[in-house]
């Protein structure tokens, strides 16, 4: 081998684009990533089908008296789809700690902040793509099943359409919701490093915390906690009776965004300070 320096490196690319490209390649070349991606879409759509196929306008006192929030119901698959997002996003960083790959990553890109930022961008992009497919699939199948179950325009339930402003907001908001769940999970992964620990912690936050809040006796405090939990972000899916929600749709999403930001900041600080 003769030395042929300099290799014509693509130095015109900035550090960030190179790191993004590397992180994307890493995610793309792991066999599990495709399954996680498909999992987010499949679980979201499947649960939506289960919900929309099981409601029937005939169970209402009168067809016109059905106050079902069909948009919210259709997007309810998110409730389970988020678990797949948590796993996918956490693994992006905890997997590297588990296999010590993180050492190779930091040898290639010693700037830790850039590494974590690139991971966040890749996670956001991939989750967004999966969420768009999941939401679109849910809306299409929901439309089909709801109409078959008596939720017709004649009964005051026009077919689900992104032309309706609340439905559009709910669909768009659901995509953002899943992206924020992914970022929260990534931040927690950077902080905790351990795969099982991270997934347990984040799933507890999303599944156990809302249930635990229901056991709070004082209704005043219960509502406060409902507003402060990350699952408040689910409010973005509501299209009816908004005044009865503990928190508004965008405000709820804002609460989740604050959680994600805190997790990323704490995870980032730990990632930068600690030796791998």
């Amino acid at each position: 081998m003769t030395r042929t320096l300099p290799i014509p490196t693509l130095l015109t690319r900035t550090l960030l684009t190179r790191t993004l490209y590397a992180e994307w390649t890493k995610l793309r070349t792991l066999p599990g990533s495709g399954w996680s991606f498909a999992g987010v879409v499949a679980v979201t759509v499947a649960l939506s089908i289960a919900f929309t196929a099981s409601v029937d306008a005939a169970h209402c006192p009168a067809p016109q008296g059905c106050h079902e929030d069909t948009t919210k119901l259709t997007l309810s698959g998110t409730w389970l789809g988020q678990a797949a997002v948590v796993v996918l996003a956490a693994l992006v960083i905890t997997n590297e700690h588990a296999t010590r790959m993180i050492q190779t990553t930091l040898a290639a890109t010693p700037r830790r902040a850039v590494v974590l930022f690139a991971k966040a961008v890749v996670v956001a992009g991939v989750v967004m793509a999966a969420a768009v497919l999941g939401v679109a699939g849910s809306l299409l199948t929901g439309r089909f099943f709801l109409e078959g179950n008596g939720f017709t325009a004649a009964n005051g339930h026009p077919p689900l359409s992104l032309g309706s402003e609340p439905t559009l907001r709910a669909a768009f908001g659901t995509v953002l919701y899943l992206v924020l769940v992914g970022l929260l999970s990534l931040g927690a992964g950077a902080l905790l490093r351990d795969t099982a620990g991270t997934i347990t912690a984040v799933l507890t936050l999303f599944y156990i915390a809302p249930v635990a809040v229901q056991f709070v006796g004082d209704p005043h405090w219960r509502e406060r906690l409902e507003k402060a939990a990350p699952s408040a972000g689910m409010a973005v899916q509501a299209t009816r009776n908004l005044d009865r929600l503990p928190i508004g749709p965008w405000a709820g999403l804002g609460v989740l965004a604050a959680y994600a930001a805190c997790a990323l900041l704490a995870g980032g600080a730990a990632f930068i300070r600690r030796d791998p």
């Binding site: 992180e23 390649t25 070349t29 997997n95 296999t99 290639a108």
Partner: peptide, 21 residues
């Protein structure tokens, strides 16, 4: 310090991308 599930070539590929090679 490699991911056991990633192919050898892919491991080198992401490294190349990370440094603009």
């Amino acid at each position: 310090a490699v991911h056991p599930g990633r192919r050898a070539r892919d491991h080198l590929l992401w490294m190349a991308h990370s440094n603009g090679l």
